[in-house]
């Protein structure tokens, strides 16, 4: 029995699985300690998103276990996992386009009472949000939508965040802002973050560790501040 206090925020042990008979993720191990940021990099189609869907309970595991803060969660329905101090920013259809900004933010919380206080906190990071609560989320620009996704997941003050390719298609200035917000969140609240990325510079700028996923297996990992980290990752990512 692991001591819950010392248990990592997220621990993935020997996990395999995929869609139906197709095995996309093969015997993967991954640990995100409390308060740390781990970046998983890899080209498209290498199983990154699949791994997240398995952690969140949307896809069944063929093998292995997933533990969150020392508690085994695989087999639980997604909505129960989502209530375990975890915030998930999916890459596909991450927002309710036809709901307002305010409603999207509200859905980041489980009860409405704390809304004003949390909005104030999130508004520090993204000052445009409190002014535009009544706007439909689908009418925000691409960058604003990404910021709304992050803002929504910060509403509940999660202890761990799973973020899937948040930088995809973003302007450098927005990426810089998001990097700042995530680093600040970790510093202020000790939030652990699992970052799924293709943007090497962004990932290495805020992560403590990196791991490269190729054909559903981790082929390289190490500290993000290693001198050769970018070079090693790019070897796997390059065309």
């Amino acid at each position: 029995m692991t001591d819950a206090a010392k248990a990592p925020a997220l621990s993935v042990r020997g996990v395999s699985g995929g869609y139906g008979a197709a095995i996309v993720v093969k015997n993967v191990d991954l640990t995100v300690p409390e308060g740390r940021i781990v970046a998983v990099l890899g080209k498209n189609g290498m199983g990154k998103t699949t791994l997240l869907k398995m952690i969140m309970g949307f896809l069944p595991l063929h093998q292995g276990e997933v533990h969150l803060f020392g508690k085994r969660i695989n087999g639980e329905p997604p909505y129960l996992i989502a209530r375990r101090n975890i915030a998930f920013c999916p890459q596909e259809q991450p927002l309710f386009q036809d709901l307002t900004v305010g409603e999207n933010l509200r859905l980041g919380l489980f009860d409405d009472d704390a809304f004003e206080a949390k909005l104030e906190k999130v508004g520090v990071h993204f000052p445009f949000l409190p002014d535009r609560l009544r706007q439909r989320a689908g009418t925000l620009s691409g960058g604003e939508q990404k910021m709304l996704i992050v803002a929504r997941s910060l509403m509940a003050s999660p202890r761990i965040m799973l973020i899937d390719e948040i930088t995809e298609g973003l302007q450098p200035s927005v990426i810089e802002r998001l990097a700042h917000v995530l680093a600040e969140q970790r510093r202020a609240e000790g939030t652990a973050i699992l970052l799924i990325e293709q943007h090497v510079t962004f990932a290495l700028a805020i992560a403590d560790e990196y791991a490269v996923l190729n054909q559903g297996e981790f082929v390289d990992r190490g500290p993000a501040n290693a001198a050769d980290a970018a070079e090693r990752i790019n070897r796997h990512l390059s065309i």
């Binding site: 969140m56 949307f58 329905p77 997604p78 909505y79 989502a82 209530r83 998930f88 999916p90 259809q93 991450p94 927002l95 309710f96 386009q97 036809d98 709901l99 409603e103 509200r106 859905l107 980041g108 489980f110 009860d111 409405d112 929504r152």
Partner: peptide, 25 residues
Amino acid sequence: TRLGLNARAVIMNENLAQALGINSS
């Protein structure tokens, strides 16, 4: 109401609603 918001979230995107902790069942 919160219930109505949850219901509309399930109508629009059930997977995302679940990922936000809504018991769609």
